[in-house]
Amino acid sequence: MTKWIEIGALNDIPVLGSRVVRTASGDVAVFRTSEDEVFALDDRCPHKGGPLSQGIVHNKRVTCPLHNFVIELRSGMAVAPDEGCTRAHPTKVENGMVWLGVQTPEVVPAE
């Protein structure tokens, strides 16, 4: 089940920029596009774990600061010819506030 958590104001994220949300299972990078859409990805590049939150955001994509992998913000997929995928998290913006959808533990299937 997805639990929605309010994480902050849209205006606290720079346009074409990103902020980090710390969670128990690692950092989540929250991005804002030039159209004020918000996306969230695990803050780990599929290449060598670079912090995507520190990259340059452009056209619903972010370029990893370490070796320039370009990642789709919506899906977390690396843009060809690079390969790999980072986990994407659902987000929504309501009344200027940003909400992050997190999977609650109950429904995560046991290993």
């Binding site: 994480i7 606290d12 902020r19 980090v20 949300v21 710390r22 128990a24 999977q103």
Partner: peptide, 13 residues
Amino acid sequence: RNEFTPLAELELA
């Protein structure tokens, strides 16, 4: 200032 601080810290997840 925002650059150097997290937007939020969640205990969850």
